[in-house]
């Protein structure tokens, strides 16, 4: 499943930035800030690729950080979960520091538990139960999550 991060202003279709066939094959796609809707072809700006837009966007605390908002096909770590989303923890990476893992375990952040990601910059902040934990992004990258459980709902599915 890919994360649908753009809504077409013309037809309302929600799509991933790479979804349009033309964009996928375009040689200048890497640095291009334009995207096309796969349904109607309408071309719009992808604010997430603009550094200035990202800087401006950071002024609004409830908006998720753009560079963490785009879940690629292999994006299954806590660091890639968009801010504001809840997610179920899958596992820790093999090279995850043992002492940090023991701490997280003591706080209750263990596989199969639900956490809500609040922000990613300057550090990742997660909420579990009635507790907020700040952890370095490198640690967040070592926590694998079930990608299909990423949800914007206030309560995780039972």
């Amino acid at each position: 499943m890919s994360y649908l991060d753009i809504q077409c202003p013309m037809c309302g279709q929600q799509y991933a930035s790479q979804e349009h066939q033309g964009c996928k094959s375009c040689p200048v796609n890497k640095n291009c800030t334009l995207v096309c809707c796969p349904a109607c072809g309408y071309q719009t700006i992808n604010a997430r690729k603009s550094k200035f837009a990202r800087l401006v966007q950071m002024l609004f605390p409830n908006n998720p950080r753009s560079d963490h908002n785009e879940l690629g096909e292999g994006g299954t770590t806590l660091a890639e979960v968009p801010a504001g989303c809840k997610v179920q923890v899958l596992a820790f990476s093999e090279d995850f520091p043992a002492d940090r893992r023991a701490y997280l375990q003591a706080y209750g952040l263990v596989p199969d538990y639900w956490v809500q990601v609040l922000q990613h910059s300057p550090v990742t902040i997660v909420r579990l139960d009635h507790l907020e934990l700040a952890l370095e992004n490198e640690l967040a990258r070592g926590i694998k999550v079930y990608q299909h459980t990423i949800t914007q709902e206030s309560d995780p599915p039972k």
Partner: peptide, 8 residues
């Protein structure tokens, strides 16, 4: 160096 993990 140890990575940051702190309760808020």
């Amino acid at each position: 160096r140890t990575q940051l993990l702190v309760e808020l």
